[in-house]
Design a binder for these strands. Structure first.
Length: 750
RNA sequence: GGGCGAUUAGCUCAGCUGGUCAGAGCAUCUCGUUUACACCGAGAGGGUCAUAGGUUCGAAUCCUAUAUCGCCCACCA
């Protein structure tokens, strides 16, 4: 018996609908393949997306939800066209960010990280993430993501770590990863080294100080250098000028006195020095500036560390400066120089500085030993694949950016001085310091180390790869590396690690994947690495298409951020308009390469569309009399003009789907359903049958055709608006007018 | 400094390989309470497609400049 359906669609049922999908198990591609086979369909090639894992330490924002909407529209379409579909979900441990968030939480509880100890900290962080991941997972489901949660991974899952370690071992054996001593980007707030991509540039106010360095053997003759960072002068080991600079020609090879420190340092000449800039004379601080470091290497200059990893002054410097912050020291130095008459002037300038991408703290360039991955050969292969057309980035402009990134890539610093992450699986006999010393001093041995450093060696200086300590011989002491891998070193392996690695069962079935979708702001961090590491480890590109969604912005066009308080929680939108409405907005507005300022009125417009689907369906169902149900459900559909037009429409939408033109697809389904099916056909048929008696041939024929067209429309609309279409489908099932669940129905061929 | 992209109705933007391409949604205005839906229906207004040249039978669509805006990359001390 037919019940009266509610007059308007209530999106509260979305949660229930999701449970129905979950209960069906058809998000699992193995089950879907079985279903297709049993139902007599061709089982086509699997479709796989290893979904971007959001940070496990927080909630999803509208940007994440946007990404999942795109993954899901692709996945649902593929599933309904014969492809067993795997949307593999995960959660990211997000190294630096989580460590900092969790450390702050501990501080609030009055506990400290160091007191807690590494193991306990790790355990507690893991719990914290596991707990928080629930929120993210709920939100993924709320937008309708038809992912296979039986395959969900956390990036620190031991199964993934194992694969990440294997990759590292392979890279070590091939000489691609190595320890090196060079200038790194140290974030004094996060207390770790950062890769170049983990930094940003920002224009900030600063000073440009002109300092006079007295020339040795001359009275009151100086060479003036200009610097934005006077505090680094304590570590100066040369002054550099351009060899073609007439002003300084005679000084090259002479010595000058470094004020305050009272050391003699040479004047050297190098082509790279810009004569126009400042005074044309550059103070060279190899330990604290990348350019200077290179100069130092070229001319064999001494490297003097005067700033430590916490951005405090230290080293071989006058006692009074030790422990000062860099700015404090800069001021103190300028005052002293002023008194000595060696400060020519100070200009106030605006200049670009490097800051931490996470916490916006000023980066301190310091010398340090870190693990590096020589990504150049991997980048070359990635470039080759792009040029062969095996990888496409949508939009194309970003593909050019990616190529540019690969062309100019530098070794990637992959070690981080954190606890939260995958600990680097390396042991050093006699400690890291010994190993690094031997690496730096090629040809020298342990004896030399003891003689030159005056320290006793506690091992052979050998290295051991592995998670477990090797057997101890001759009382040597093995020390495990304290550092962890950069988060992106592991997430760069996501497409194959989550499938069990090259030997995994899932890998054989579901790799390579087809597409990767994420916001464009992590292109270099993530996709760039996944492509390189995928090719490296598996010999195949991990996916052929990178689909970059637009950036979701606040209504005024600015970035949504917690600090500005202009963020909108997905929950708010879900409650007000439902997931389908939000999805439709994404498809039409959050296009690749664009910015999408949140437009609530547009989401509202889509809510109206969702309701229209519900209502038109309700009307069709209402028109079918109970006595006609049987006959209509068994009616043999024949060709008709309306059905042909519908077929064409489905073909058109399918082509949009295959070309990733979801905006056009969304527009087309809306246009067709509303303005063709509702405004024209329903009206026509309403008119046709208004004087017909129940059960008449004309009624049966017209209503059967209408029902058929409705069902085909529900199918083609389902990837876009899965909830409302499934809700309607289930009403049809109740009446015996449809079977199963819509999610697994197969599209009409076209 | 280098690279990329944008500039189309009041707003946010579509417009794929040049020829019904001058569009959509929202907003505005008029009319309509017809037994699916007012989260509705019927209709209307509104743009020399940034500017200037060029290619072409024909350009919003291709090329070249110019202007404005945005993003990314970058060791100018």
């Amino acid at each position: 018996m037919k019940e009266e359906l509610p007059k308007s669609y209530n999106s509260d049922v979305e949660v229930e609908i999701y449970s129905l999908w979950e209960g069906s198990g058809l998000s699992n591609p193995d089950n879907m393949a079985k279903y297709l086979k049993e139902a007599g369909y061709d089982v086509k090639k699997p479709f796989t997306i290893t979904l971007p894992p959001p940070n496990a330490n927080g909630n999803l924002h509208l940007g994440h939800v946007c990404g999942y909407s795109f993954h899901d529209v692709m996945g649902r379409y593929m599933r309904m066209t014969g492809h067993p579909t795997l949307l593999l979900p995960g959660k990211d441990h997000a190294g630096i960010q989580t460590e900092s968030v969790f450390t702050k939480i501990l501080e609030k509880e009055g506990k400290s990280k160091s007191e807690m100890g590494r193991e306990e900290f790790f355990r507690r962080s893991y719990e914290f993430c596991t707990e928080n991941a629930k929120n993210a997972r709920e939100q993924e489901k709320r937008i309708g993501l038809s992912a296979d949660y039986s395959r969900e991974f956390f990036t620190l899952d031991p199964r993934l770590t194992k694969i990440v370690y294997e990759t590292f071992y392979k890279m070590f054996e091939e000489g691609l990863v190595y320890r090196d001593k060079r200038i790194i980007n140290q974030c004094p707030n996060c207390h770790t080294a950062l890769a170049d991509v983990d930094t940003e540039h920002e224009e900030r106010r600063g000073i440009f100080a002109y300092i006079k360095y007295p020339i040795v053997g001359k009275d009151k003759e100086y060479i003036t250098v200009a610097t934005t960072r006077p505090e680094t002068m304590l570590g100066d080991t040369a002054v550099a000028v351009n060899p073609n600079d007439e002003r300084y020609k005679d000084l090259v090879g002479k010595k000058v006195i470094l004020p305050i420190a009272n050391r003699e340092i040479p004047v050297i000449a190098d082509e790279s020095i810009d004569m126009e800039l400042g005074t044309g004379a550059l103070k060279v601080t190899p330990a604290h500036s990348p350019i200077d470091f290179e100069l130092g290497k070229r001319y064999g200059l001494e490297v003097r560390n005067v700033i430590n990893e916490n951005a405090k002054m230290e080293g071989d410097i006058p006692e009074r400066f030790k422990g000062m912050g860099t700015i404090e020291c800069s001021k103190a130095l300028c005052e002293e120089l002023e008194k000595e008459g060696l400060l020519e002037k100070i200009e106030n300038i605006k200049h670009d500085v490097m800051i931490c991408e996470r916490c916006k703290t000023l980066i301190e360039p310091i010398i340090s030993n870190q693990w590096y991955l020589d990504v150049k050969p991997l980048a070359d292969k990635a470039l080759e694949e792009i040029r062969k057309g095996n990888i496409k980035v949508i939009p194309i402009g970003q593909q050019k950016a990616l190529e540019h990134f690969y062309e100019n890539i530098e070794p990637w610093c992959i070690s981080r001085q954190l606890w939260w992450g995958q600990r680097i699986p390396v042991w050093y006999s006699g400690g890291k310091k010994l190993y690094d010393w031997l690496q730096e001093n090629e040809g020298k041995g342990v004896d030399d180390y003891e003689n030159e450093t005056g320290e006793e060696a506690t091992g052979t200086g050998k290295i051991h790869l592995g998670e477990e300590q090797p057997n101890v011989e001759n009382n040597e002491i093995w020390e495990q590396d304290e550092d962890v891998f950069d988060t992106w070193f592991s997430s760069g392996q996501w497409p194959f690690s989550t499938l069990g690695g090259p030997e995994g069962e899932d890998f054989k079935k579901y790799y390579p994947t087809q597409v990767m979708t994420h916001a464009r702001d992590i292109l270099f961090w993530w996709s760039a690495r996944m492509i390189m590491m995928g090719i490296y480890k598996t010999g195949e590109v991990p996916y052929n298409t990178v689909f970059l969604t637009g950036m979701i912005l606040a209504a005024d066009g600015s970035k949504m951020s917690k600090s500005k308080g202009n963020g909108v929680e997905p929950k708010e939108i879900f409650e007000k308009y439902g997931a389908d409405s939000l999805r439709m907005w994404y498809y039409s507005d959050a296009l690749p390469g664009s910015n999408a300022p949140l437009r609530e009125e547009k989401i509202k417009g889509n809510r109206n569309f969702v309701n229209k689907i519900w209502n038109a369906s309700r009307f069709i169902v209402m028109n079918i009399d109970d006595k006609e149900m049987g006959e209509i459900s068994n009616f043999k559909i024949t060709e008709s003009e309306r059905i042909n037009i519908t077929k064409d429409h489905i073909g058109k939408v399918s082509r949009y789907m295959e070309k990733y033109q979801f905006n056009l697809g969304a527009e087309a389904i809306r246009e067709f359903f509303w303005h063709q099916l509702c405004d024209v056909w329903i009206e026509e048929i309403k008119n046709d049958i208004k004087d017909e008696g129940i059960g008449s041939e004309k009624r049966i024929k017209s209503l059967s055709e209408l029902l058929y067209i409705l069902k085909e429309n529900l199918k083609i609309m389902h990837p876009f608006v899965p909830f409302v279409t499934e809700a309607v489908w289930q009403e049809l099932v109740k009446l015996g007018l449809a079977d199963g669940i819509l999610m697994s129905q197969q599209m009409m061929s076209h």
